[in-house]
């Protein structure tokens, strides 16, 4: 299988701090990758570069043989790449169904979007997606009235509707308690594998990363620290990854 995502020597600098330094990676289609590393290692920057919400200072990213920098059509890009963050990404004031149907906005024109505000369009798709994340009965609930875990399920339902080839997840479970976090993570992995999607997620928890992902990429201070299959990551790897400078 050819390389699906090819990252070549990308770098990103914020004012004085180096966020990413000459990073190269390649990802195969359908791979499940966890990005780990201490805070400020560059995980979020890498995801933002992949989502094209941030341009790299150096290097280039190729997706499916096409340069990411040249994929300027937002609507087409949304079919290729989708991103999910913490639950703050939803519009709390809208009923759940509209937050889910927002996944269709890349396909809909302005008139259909407007009409849908009053008469939800493609309602069956929304119901199907919500059923898959276990929130069938919350269709018309105000999104802000839902719990944190439920809101993250709504975000997953939106992603189901959007159905991109690559799913990027930036700390998707950071603000949830452990039980709910694992729940959501399991659901995310299940959905991605059923949809034959490529999944790249940044995670705080090494335990979850090893449990749910095939490949672990560790970043530290903007550099690639290690890139190993989940099974061959040892405790010694992890300890040196998270070791503070003073102890080194």
């Amino acid at each position: 299988m050819s390389e699906f995502i090819d990252i070549k020597k990308i770098g990103k600098v914020y004012e004085r701090k180096i966020a990413l330094s000459s990073l190269s990676l390649s990802v195969k289609k359908g791979e499940f990758i966890a990005l780990i590393g201490p805070s400020g290692a560059g995980k979020t920057t890498l995801l933002n570069l992949l989502a094209a919400t941030l341009p790299p200072d150096q290097g280039e990213i190729t997706i499916d043989g096409q340069l990411l920098a040249e994929m300027t059509d937002q609507k087409k890009r949304a079919k290729k790449i989708g991103i999910i963050r913490q639950q703050f990404d939803l519009i709390g004031e809208l009923p759940v169904i509209h937050n889910v149907l927002a996944g269709k906005l890349s396909e809909w024109g302005i008139m259909k979007s407007l009409l849908s505000m009053f008469f939800p369009q493609d309602k069956q798709d929304a119901i199907l997606a919500l059923t898959r994340v276990g929130l069938r009965d919350k269709l018309y609930e105000r999104t802000s009235a839902l719990s944190g875990g439920e809101q993250q399920r709504v975000a997953l339902a939106r992603l189901l509707i959007q159905n991109p080839e690559i799913v990027l997840a930036d700390e998707p479970v950071a603000s949830l308690d452990p039980a709910r976090a694992e729940d959501i993570l399991a659901l995310l992995v299940k959905i991605a594998s059923e949809g034959n999607q490529t999944l790249i997620a940044s995670l705080h928890s090494v335990e979850y990363a090893k449990k749910y992902f095939d490949r672990l990429i560790a970043l530290k201070d903007g550099y690639l620290f290690f890139d190993l299959p989940a099974s061959s990551v040892t405790d010694a790897h992890i300890a040196s990854l998270y070791k503070l400078k003073e102890q080194a």
Partner: peptide
């Protein structure tokens, strides 16, 4: 954040207005 999320889902300017700014 919610607006960026909508944009990432492929929403254009008018759609972010309808589905993001106005309800908020």
């Amino acid at each position: 954040e919610p607006i960026k999320a909508l944009e990432a889902a492929g929403a254009g300017k008018w759609q972010t207005l309808m589905y993001g700014y106005l309800p908020m």
